[in-house]
Write a protein that binds this DNA or RNA. Structure first.
Lengths: 148, 148
DNA sequence: CATGACAGTCAAGTTCCTTGACCATATAGT
DNA sequence: ACTATATGGTCAAGGAACTTGACTGTCATG
């Protein structure tokens, strides 16, 4: 395939991600969550996976642990997260979602799903399945948040 | 398709865009361009399209014209862009790429194409074509840069 | 039990973007 | 032609999010 077409794909991926991010933010705002940013969503994603610490979150987002600590503090203060002592390590604090945190996570997931569901109008079922499979094949595990 | 699969697609798009952005940044650095950020790339994209002003750039990026002005100033000072008088409007300044600006644009495009080209190892030609077609179908014109 | 590694926080500084004010020029209304 | 309003751009100040550096407390290794 030509460089030009590869470049097209790159730009399309960027535009698509803009739509996803904006769709999530708009959906969250519509559901009453006005005090969370996309970075916080990535914190939620890690915390929901279980056994999360500030250092885990930092690695997951690709930021310093100080920055991660600030994001967590923001979410704790607003009632989305709790910090509990780690029975196995007194230095560490285990992060967990509160009821509100779970509600926000669900809302973000619904908003994300809605955004993609809207694409079904332009895409038949086979194409949507193909899109998912293609992305799954090329995406590698790693930092979730780009450095821009 | 289920909400879960839609959510998968949303997250995959985000991860793919991270790979694209990181790939471009890394490719630019490898080619000796250390003083441009992704936002500047979006400025280049608008300027290359022709007849660009600071206000155009601001609309294109979804930021204030003050922020756009600062990005442009950054690129002018480093020799990537020139500001010329607009023969049709004395208030306005027309932005244009210098030779270095064109070189940087080409480098960014090559880096983006390379990143996507690497995906060919995990994707056959039909799947790559399908990916491009699917993205093209769902992407709508609009702001290029997400608000995160 | 001493030394080094690690979890987390505090403090200060930087960067990027915002709001608000302003000037110069263009456009529309009368 | 003259005033009013809108627009292009910049300057200045403030804020939000991140960084680096220093520090405390705890774990792990010899």
């Amino acid at each position: 395939m030509s460089d030009q077409k590869h470049l097209d794909v790159a730009m399309l991926v960027l535009r698509a991600s803009t739509q996803v991010v904006d769709g999530i933010q708009h959906g969250l705002a519509r559901r009453g969550f006005h005090d969370v940013r996309p970075s916080h969503g990535f914190v939620f994603a890690r915390v929901r996976a279980g056994d999360a610490t500030v250092a885990d979150v930092a690695g997951h987002l690709g930021v310093t642990k100080q920055a991660a600590s600030q994001l967590v503090e923001h979410l704790v203060q607003r009632g989305y997260l709790t910090r509990a002592v780690d029975p196995r390590d007194a230095r560490s604090r285990l992060l967990a979602l509160t009821a509100r945190g779970r509600a926000c996570t669900r809302a973000a997931e619904q908003a994300a799903a809605e955004t993609v569901a809207a694409w079904q109008g332009q895409l038949d079922a086979a194409a949507m399945t193909g899109l998912r499979a293609a992305l799954q094949a090329v995406v590698v595990p790693g930092r979730l948040r780009p450095a821009w």
